[in-house]
Structures are given as C-alpha cells and as structure tokens.
Design a protein around this nucleic acid. Structure first.
Length: 589
DNA sequence: ACGCTATGGCCCC
DNA sequence: TGGGGCCCCTAGCG
C-alpha cells in the first residue's frame, strides 16, 4: 500500500484553492507528506460526498446519455458542449426527446451542423480541419492511420512460471544471455514524490546533476533557477536573480561539476558556482538593454565542448557564438548557422566527437557542423524538416544517430550520421505540436540505454483515461516507432512537455506546468495495490454506477487549471492514440 | 465563473 | 521583407 499512497500527495481534492497543496516548502519532511496523502479509498469517499450536491443533475445526466447515445450532445452537465437551447430544456423540464440538433455550433471553426471539442474526456476533431495528429487533410484524429492501439501498457504482462522443462532451458540458457545483451528496461511510471511546486511559472528546463545522484536543477519561465535534492526535498536553493526571463538551457560539466551554465531569453549566459552560490555573467547579448523585440536577443541553444573548454551558444537571430569557458571571452565572430533572423532552438555536441555540432532551428532545418571550421553555409549536412525543429540530439553513447523533434508532429531518426542524410531513416508520427503557451516538446534519448533505442517525450494530444483527459509521457522505441510505455497519473491533468531521464538510475523527472514530478518504476507492491484498487473501483461502478459520473473536481490537480476541459471525467471508453513509423521511401503519410 | 494574457508561428498583404 | 492578424486540446490569476 505504501508506494501507491505515496504517489498521491495532492490532497486538496475537495476545496479548490483552499485545500492547500503540499508544497515542498511547507512540508519539508517527506515522510509526513506520505502520511497525509490520500489513498484511493479516500478518493471514492470524496466522490460520494460530492454527489448529493449535484444530484438533481446527475439523474438527468444518466438519462440523457442513454437517450442521446454516445456521440451526440451527451454530457449535458458539460456547460460548453451543450448548446444553449438544449441546456435550457434540460434545466427546466427534464429529459424528454431533446433532439434539437439544429443549432450545433462547432467550437473550433464556428460553423454549424457539427460539433467539435471535448465530449467528456474525448476530444472530437473539427472535420473542417486537417487531422490534428498527422496534419494531413481528409480525416480526423479518430480515423487517422497513425492512431493505432498500443499492445502493452506500462504494466508488464504477468510473469510466466510454468515450471516446464522448456522454462528451465529458457531460464538457464536463454534468459541469462538476454539480460547480458540488453538490461531490463524499467519504466519509471510510478509517482515517487508528489507535486513539487516552488516554481511560479511553467517549468522550462530540467537537468540532473552529472555526479550527485539525487540533485536536480530546474528552471522556469521567469528565470528562476532551482537546485534541489529530490530525496531530501527540503534541501533546496533557488536563485531568482540569475536570469530575468525564460531559462532555456542548463549544463554542468561532469569533470568540473560545481559550475553550472545557464542560458536564457534575457540574452545572457550565466555561470553559477553551486558551492558558493556566486554567479557571474559570461555573455550578454543585450548590453544596451531593451530596444524593442526586433533587436532583443534571446538564447535558446547551448552546449559544452568539454574537450576544448568551449561553450557554444546560439541566439534567436540565427547566430552561433563560441566562448572560452575559462577566459570568459568570445572566440571569433558570431557565425550565421540558420536562416538570418530565425531562432536557433537547440545545440548539441557529439558525445564521441565534440567538435561535431548539431543545431536545430526555426528555419525548418537541423544542421551538422564542424566547429573547427565554422563559416556560414559550411555545414556538413542539412536535415530538412516539415516545420520548426524543436530539438536535435546525437545519440548518447556512440553519437552515430540523430533524433529530432519537429512541430509537424513527427519525431525523426537518422541511424547513421556518416551515411546518407538526405532523408531520415524513420519518421514517427507523434503528437507534440504545441501552442505558444507550452514549453516546446523535445524527444530525448535515454542516456542509460546503450542500444540507443529508447526516447522519451511528452504528448500533447489527450487521451481518455478512465474518463479523465490525460496527457501521458511516451517512451518510444525509435527503431520500430512502437510505443513502449505511456506514463501518466490521474492527478496530473496538465501537459508535460519537459522530461528528463536520470543518467544512471531508473528515474524520470517531469516538468508539467509549474509542477515537477519524480517517477520511479513500479514495484510488485505497487502493482498488487493497483489491481486491488481497480477491483474496488469496478465494484463501486457496478453497484452504484449511475451516480458516479460527475465528480468534476475530484481529479483536479493542484494546478486547478481549466486546462482540463469540463466534464472530462465522465465515464467513457478508453481511447488510445499512438503513433506509427514511416519508413524510408514509403509513400508520404 | 469569466476574461485576460503570455511576446509562438504562420499566413497574408 | 516586415507587420498585423489569426489560431489555439494552455494555465493560472484577479
């Protein structure tokens, strides 16, 4: 029981706002936090308590759902989805054959005759728009060929143990070798420590300390930098004066691990001594202050060439700057590496050959450079993308592969950088398009996976998970495009664009809105409890199902956002979105 | 319960 | 080539 309880730190499921989420500051002792956390049975209790409040409508609810069918204007309690006339009917004169379908107005395109938007936890695409997932016209997400079912969820299949001779052979000969070949891949899918929420704005970057196992660095949109220990949560330092706006990137050299480099949209690079807390500016691209957006320089991409002691930095006008780490001086002139005036979104030095640099940009390209011979138009390769490239990374071990995330909802993989780079080896359709309000999604390699296969990335499009719209974090096999795991928790209803895997441990850290979450793999005990919980739930549904449907508030996270569309946790079938691979040379999707 | 707003990217003129 | 407007499966605040 312990572990799962642990995952529910958010205990203000009743009163919004007043309930007081458990922030790290307030309750420093994590054991106490565990004690307060609510178990699943509490949840049920809450639900039932809430029901009487809305009981009058609840009854209607049930009836309507039945009379109108699944797709129609069901979920009338959902204020938005119910068109005004229908709502009126319902309020006053109960059910009846409410088939006033005439005035269906689409919330997306504002035209009549159809409806789009959330129906409970399911989002209905507007048929006038291209597919939200693959961006091609002619169909919607529901019928998108890239929407395929995932075979296995995050919960592993039950262990086979038949004690036959075959099993014996398998255990003694085959299995031993398999684990030699590839260590078991453990998905950190269990919330380990609750809602860590000291950032006041959305989290924009996260980084594990390269040598101290439980030390984590986090940055937000305001420029706040947090250095903290996720085992001893009270050990936390925040720096609010290092940067004045979006903290875009952080780097620590493992060989010199007390110095932290940070890059920000305020146009500066700063280095902070983590021992003394003293910071000093390394670069300021806006020495003359604010003169309007057309001149203000922002820094997004940054990386370290540890061999040469170089810091590589790129701005939103397409220029790359080289800095000598020690003398803190610029080397040479800025070099235009992407279309003039376009943002360079990320930089990555090849782990095997640090002189080789990968840059990604708003000009729809990722480019490979030799930093020893930098000139405009001297890139070793230009990798074309459909839209803005959010990030590009060499594979963490050999540096032979490239993984990019592009706003055309595709993750691209190049298997061999010395081969033909004309087109990617694979394109994996995956929902990570974003609007300006979110931190860009970036698919990142699992640094522990020396087969250089697994990547992690948050998902934009929501999925109906037991009646709640959630945005999972996806683990993707970049060789096959298969979804290995989707990580989510009913308490996290916000989108999780920032994800980082621990360099050594099976730990995932997620930045979702203002909150940070730590995930670890599920233990046997977790699984057992989960099954029990599920069983209990089934029982409740079975015995008093009709009344169960509302509970709009019961799942709201601390964020208390209305990012969760109303009425989303109606009971509804689980639908899954996933992704598919497009092999080289296959017809255009 | 609203309504506002971030300084995103794209399209169009 | 540059500015204005438009589009949103956002989130949090007043």
């Amino acid at each position: 029981m312990g572990p799962t309880t642990r995952s529910r730190f958010v205990y203000n499921r009743r009163g919004r706002g007043g309930g007081g989420q458990c922030t790290v500051d307030e309750a420093s002792d994590d054991d106490e936090q565990r004690a307060i956390s609510s178990s699943s049975s509490d949840e049920e209790a809450d639900n039932e308590e809430e029901e009487p409040e809305a009981s009058g409508e609840e009854v209607d609810d049930g009836d309507d759902e039945e009379s109108e069918g699944e797709d129609g204007a069901a979920e009338p309690a959902n204020k938005e989805s119910a068109p005004p006339p229908a709502a009126g009917e319902r309020k006053g004169g109960r059910k009846g054959p409410i088939t006033i379908s005439l005035k269906k107005v689409c919330k997306v395109c504002k035209r009549t005759g159809h409806e789009a938007g959330f129906k409970g936890a399911v989002y209905i695409d507007c048929p006038m728009k291209p597919c939200f997932l693959c961006k091609m016209p002619g169909h919607t997400t529901l019928t998108c060929p890239h929407r395929v079912a995932m075979e296995h969820g995050v919960i592993p299949a039950p262990r086979r143990n038949t004690n036959t001779s075959l099993d014996y052979v398998f255990q003694s000969q085959v299995k031993g070798k398999i684990s030699m070949v590839k260590p078991q891949f453990l998905v950190p899918n269990q919330l380990e420590c609750g809602n860590i929420k000291f950032h006041q704005r959305r989290v924009t970057c996260l980084e594990f300390h390269p040598t101290k196992n439980s030390v984590l660095l986090s940055g937000d949109k305001k420029g706040l930098l947090g250095v903290w220990d996720y085992v001893k949560l009270h050990e936390k330092i925040t720096y609010d004066s290092v940067h004045s706006c979006i903290l875009n990137s952080m780097k620590i050299d493992a060989a010199n691990d007390e110095i932290l480099y940070t890059a920000s949209s305020d146009g500066t690079i700063s280095c902070t001594d983590l021992d003394t807390g003293i910071g000093s500016p390394l670069l300021n691209l806006n020495p003359n202050g604010w003169n309007g957006p057309s001149t203000w320089r922002m820094i997004y991409g940054m990386d370290l060439n540890t061999d040469k002691g170089l810091l590589l930095v790129a701005d939103n006008f397409g220029f790359l700057y080289l800095l000598d780490r020690r003398s803190k001086t610029r080397i040479g002139h800025p070099v235009l590496i992407h279309k003039k005036g376009s943002k360079v979104t990320s930089l990555h030095c090849n782990p095997a050959q640090p002189d080789v640099l990968l840059s990604s940009g708003n000009d729809h390209y990722a480019r490979i450079w030799d930093t020893r011979k930098l000139e405009p138009n001297s890139s070793l390769a230009s990798l074309a993308h459909g839209r803005v490239v959010n990030s590009g990374y060499f594979s963490p071990q050999s540096g032979n592969k490239i993984l990019t995330t592009c706003q055309d909802n595709r993750i691209r993989v190049w298997d061999y950088i010395f081969g033909n780079l004309q087109s990617p080896s694979r394109e994996i359709v995956h929902s990570h398009d974003f609007n300006r309000h979110l931190t860009p999604f970036k698919a990142e390699w699992d640094p522990k996976d020396y087969t250089e296969t697994v990547a992690v990335i948050g998902r934009y499009i929501s999925e109906n998970y037991n009646g709640v719209a959630l945005h999972p974090i996806d683990f993707i096999d970049t060789n096959s495009g298969k979804l290995l795991a989707e990580v989510m928790d009913p308490d996290i209803t916000t989108i999780s664009p920032v994800n980082k895997l621990h360099p050594r441990d099976d730990v995932l850290v997620t930045g979702s809105s203002r909150s940070i979450f730590i995930w670890k793999p599920k233990t046997e005990a977790d699984l057992t409890e989960e099954r029990a919980k599920q069983k209990a739930k089934e029982y409740v549904y079975g015995s008093c199902s009709r009344k169960k449907s509302n509970g709009k508030h019961d799942n709201s996270s601390d964020d208390d956002s209305d990012g969760s569309p109303d009425g989303k946790n109606k009971k509804a079938k689980k639908t899954r979105y996933t992704h598919t691979v497009k092999g080289k040379g296959k017809s255009k999707v």
